[in-house]
Computed example of a mutant assay.
Amino acid sequence: MVTITHAEPLTGGELRWPDVRYREVALRAPRSLWRVDAIEFAVSLIPGVRQVVVRDSWSGLDLSESVFGGFRFVERLFSTERDIASPYFVSVLVAPTPAALWEGPDGLRAAVEAEIEDLRPISIFPRVERAQEVGIGIAGLLTVEGLPLPAGSTDVVNASSPARALKVRLLDRVRAYVEGLRFGEPVRWAEVLHALMNEPGVADVTDLRLLRYPPGLDVVDLTDLATVDDLETFSCGENIRLLPTQVPVLVDDDTRLVVA
């Protein structure tokens, strides 16, 4: 009989991927070297990358060419071999995590470019671009039940430890939703309300409004001097729409969430 004992303590393991994250990237693993999902998969593994998308503005058929409709496809070649002497560009849009450094020799841009260098074929040049981050905030009145809140004015209640801890948990719920959105996906008011109402102790949320930092160009007053505190307040029930190159980021500010 053989007895196995562990004389030394186990070390390592702190750098492993979380199980949910590992399963997501494993399911997205490509089966070839040069494909859109291959680039996205390789870049998504770089520390500091929140999201990535590869866009090819020249892909597909160019129906504006006069050759289309002017010959029979059976009698002529549909396309010729790629001219390796002509450069071909694709855009790699990257959304970094809040703590990631973008510029510099050790920045995220350089790391992404180095990772892609081993994947790209000759004469294909990816352009690494940083996504525009749009700050998202929330404001509203909270009705709570079952929490040991002190008696007194609204300021006293909101300054108490139970109220502040509740707001931290609420922001964490909203952050999980916002950070899961893809490029250009709108921030939906109903989803934010759903996240808030799922927190134990929250009985009701009234006058919930989404905030945008900075405000959209359609509401900016160019006659006034803009400040860093400028924001756009959306109507109750209104979503925040983003451009395809924008990604939402939750602003860690709970001062506009008031426990009524």
Rank of each mutant, 00 (worst) to 15 (best):
L27Q: 06
L27R: 07
A29T: 05
P30G: 15
P30V: 01
S32F: 12
L33K: 09
L33E: 05
W34N: 06
W34Q: 10
R35L: 09
R35D: 15
V36K: 14
V36F: 06
E40R: 14
F41V: 13
A42F: 14
S44Q: 15
S44P: 02
P47F: 05
P47L: 04
G48S: 13
V52F: 13
V53N: 03
S57W: 07
S57K: 14
W58K: 07
G60W: 07
G60N: 11
G60Y: 07
G60R: 04
G60A: 08
L61N: 14
D62A: 10
L63C: 05
L63V: 06
S64D: 08
S64F: 15
E65R: 00
S66F: 01
S66C: 09
G69H: 00
G69N: 04
G70W: 00
F71N: 00
F73A: 00
F73T: 05
R76D: 01
F78D: 00
S79K: 00
T80H: 01
E81F: 00
R82C: 05
D83T: 02
A85N: 07
S86K: 06
P87G: 11
V90T: 01
V92R: 15
V92E: 07
L93D: 10
V94Q: 10
V94E: 07
P96H: 13
P96F: 13
T97M: 06
A100G: 11
W102M: 04
W102K: 11
E103N: 14
P105L: 03
D106M: 04
G107L: 06
G107H: 07
R109C: 03
A110N: 09
A111N: 12
E115H: 10
I116G: 08
D118E: 05
D118S: 11
D118A: 13
L119C: 15
R120T: 15
S123V: 14
I124Q: 02
I124S: 04
I124Y: 02
F125P: 02
F125E: 04
V128M: 03
E129M: 07
R130V: 15
R130L: 14
A131D: 15
A131I: 08
A131Y: 09
Q132K: 05
V134Q: 09
G135C: 06
G135M: 02
L141P: 02
E145G: 02
G146I: 00
L147E: 10
P148E: 05
L149M: 09
P150S: 02
A151F: 10
G152M: 03
T154L: 09
T154G: 05
V156D: 03
V156K: 05
V157Y: 09
N158Q: 09
